[in-house]
């Protein structure tokens, strides 16, 4: 595709996700807390958007608002042009913990998505097979979650989120609990899966390398209240080799800019 032009699809077609003047405040015992303040964001078809920020910047809240799991205090969120007012069915969600059902094997956990939605059984089974193969879970279909490593559990969670071919895949720190090596491998696989499926992805992460390697655009947020500091384009093409990308000057330049921005948010602490 047109890798040289930044975010061409986002400007030309209707965005998959559109966030306008979003504010979210929570009332707690100590008073009102502003989690998100004046967020404007639009994510195009097939785009990979990373949101990086320190803890407490409301990036997870932003994902939950897009999914309809948390209410906006003011402003609007549109998914495929329709306003988000409750839990949305047209999304896939991956949490930091795999959140699998202990009593179901790998296949059963993936197919939970189909059973809950009442999808066509044969179609869902075929799709599950494809995803199991794509994520390298072949041979583990009958394993129970406790028999799998953290990385493999997260693959199952990813398959479950992709089963119904959602308009947008929302990932909240999906690899945050994995060791560095597994995390790297999962990044490479996620990049490949994103290319193969063409799904729109919003990824929330603490890791600068992860954010930049995977994304078309990186949103950097500041905490208390959660605001967007800067949005950076990542013109690294669509097919990225992990090793060479890490050493690409464009990659290092963007990464250090993100790091500087994140460092600035810590200076005030």
């Amino acid at each position: 595709m047109t890798a040289t032009l930044p975010e061409p699809s986002a400007t030309l077609t209707t965005p998959v996700v559109e966030v306008n003047d979003l504010n979210v405040t929570f009332s707690s015992k100590r008073g009102r807390v502003t989690a998100l303040d004046g967020i404007n964001l639009s994510v195009g078809q097939g785009e990979f958007l990373s949101i990086a920020g320190p803890s407490g910047c409301g990036k997870s809240t932003l994902l939950k608002v897009v999914a309809g799991l948390t209410r906006a205090s003011s402003g609007s969120v549109h998914l495929r042009g329709s306003s988000v007012s409750g839990p949305r069915r047209d999304i896939g969600y991956v949490f930091q913990r795999a959140a699998l059902l202990e009593w179901r094997n790998v296949r059963g956990n993936i197919l939970l998505q189909a059973e809950m939605r009442g999808m066509d059984k044969a179609k869902a089974a075929r799709r599950a097979d494809e995803l199991i193969e794509m994520t390298g879970l072949t041979g583990f279909e009958q394993s129970l979650p406790h028999e799998l490593s953290g990385g493999m559990q997260q693959r199952v969670s990813l398959c479950r989120a992709l089963l119904h071919e959602p308009d947008v895949l929302l990932m909240d720190e999906p690899f945050g609990a994995l060791d560095a090596l597994t995390r790297e491998r999962m990044n490479i696989e996620l990049h490949r899966i994103w290319r193969e499926t063409g799904t729109t992805v919003i990824l929330v992460t603490h890791s600068v390398a992860e954010a930049v390697y995977l994304a078309n655009r990186v949103v950097v947020m500041s905490p208390r209240p959660g605001r967007i500091m800067e949005v950076l384009d990542v013109p690294l093409g669509k097919d990225r080799n992990y090793g060479t990308t890490m050493e690409d000057p464009v990659f290092t330049q963007i990464s250090s800019r993100v790091r500087d921005l994140l460092g600035a948010t810590h200076a005030g602490d």
Binding site: K64, A67, G68, L69, P87, R88, R89, I91, Y93, F95, R97, A99, L101, L112, Q113, E115, M116, R117, R160
Partner: peptide, 22 residues
Amino acid sequence: DPEILELTSTMGANPFKTFLKV
């Protein structure tokens, strides 16, 4: 797990199904 309940709510499942299966 509250996250599993959040997930099932994005799956559009009716409460009875969520009760029975989760």
